[in-house]
Amino acid sequence: MKPIDFDKITRSDDLINADYSDLDYVVEGLPLGLVGSLIAAGASGKSFFAMQQAFGIAIGRDGQKRGQVIYFAAEDPEEEFGKRIQSISKAWGLNEEDKVYARKNLWMISLLAKEPNLTAKKNETDDVYEFIEIIKPLCRKIASEGDDPLRLIYFDTLRRFHFLDENEGGAMSMVLSVMEQICHELHCSCIFLHHINKSSALNNNSDMQQAARGSSVLSDNIRFQQFLAPMSKDEAENFARPKTPKMAIGEDGRRFFVRFGVSKQNYGSPIPERWYERDENGVLMPADIIKIEGK
């Protein structure tokens, strides 16, 4: 346990009389300084969605508070997410100002084959974690080269950032504790990408709070959990595109659609679920689908 300075504990009357400003949300539902997640089945588009989310923060898209974002990709080579970033830029039709902020604020870093380990310590006698010490120079570089502060770090995917048993609660508490320390020391938030368990995948329950694979700690000990759920067979037969309101999306079309939502949220107003459709390059674009009359 880290030392606690009880002389700096805030008194209850100070808390009562404090003037609290609105929470600073990094993404809708996740306040600055906290850990969140994005869970989904494999090959459902979670990496693409997270990159789009990161890109949006970097350029301040749709009124978001702009800031710098680090995206650690431990499963994909640089060339792959480079293609994805190009596809997002094209699909969104970025102007020159957006492109300038994208260059300044979005840091895509491949850790493929680097074996990053969040829980490794410099030595057994202290609580200094190697990963935090390694990324501090990067954060200093980011601070010196950009005008906007660091706001968010992504870990894609969680399994690639530790060597512990995901079903063991104590082990996963340690992983989350290191992320919380990163948030505290670097004044940012963290989002980890994670897979759903087999039962949730088989039963189309990606939207359940306990759908995350491994220990329940991975959901219970965070304050924000997003999900992506592939369109089910039933949904594909009951929904249509507005241009063809009587024609079901069907089996061939459903693989292009995913439903985004938040299965755990401790702060802010409830976030409505949204449908997205993959374009020809894999970019997830907002989809306006409708229920077929009589179904």
Rank of each mutant, 00 (worst) to 15 (best):
S215V: 14
S215A: 11
S215W: 08
S215R: 05
S216P: 14
S216K: 11
S216M: 09
V217S: 05
L218A: 09
L218D: 08
S219G: 15
S219W: 02
S219D: 10
S219N: 13
D220M: 12
D220N: 15
N221L: 10
I222D: 01
R223K: 14
R223G: 12
F224L: 05
F224K: 00
Q225R: 11
Q226P: 00
Q226R: 10
Q226S: 09
Q226F: 03
F227G: 03
A229R: 14
P230A: 10
M231P: 03
K233N: 08
K233R: 10
K233Q: 12
D234F: 05
E237K: 11
N238V: 01
N238W: 00
N238H: 07
F239E: 05
A240I: 11
A240D: 04
A240C: 07
A240K: 12
A240E: 01
A240L: 08
R241S: 01
R241Q: 06
P242C: 04
P242Q: 04
P242K: 09
K243A: 14
K243T: 13
T244P: 00
T244D: 12
T244M: 07
P245R: 06
P245I: 05
K246S: 13
M247T: 15
M247F: 07
M247L: 15
A248I: 05
A248T: 08
A248Y: 01
A248W: 03
A248R: 07
I249R: 02
G250F: 06
G250C: 08
G250H: 06
E251A: 13
E251W: 03
D252P: 00
D252H: 11
R254W: 08
R254C: 01
R254L: 04
R254E: 02
R255W: 06
R255C: 05
R255Y: 07
F256A: 12
F257R: 09
F257M: 06
V258P: 00
R259N: 15
R259C: 14
R259D: 02
R259A: 02
R259T: 11
F260W: 14
F260K: 10
F260N: 05
F260M: 09
G261Q: 05
G261I: 04
V262N: 03
V262Y: 01
V262I: 15
V262L: 02
V262M: 04
V262E: 02
S263E: 01
S263M: 12
S263A: 15
S263N: 14
K264V: 10
K264W: 06
Q265R: 11
Q265V: 00
N266M: 11
N266I: 01
N266W: 05
Y267I: 02
G268A: 08
G268T: 07
G268N: 08
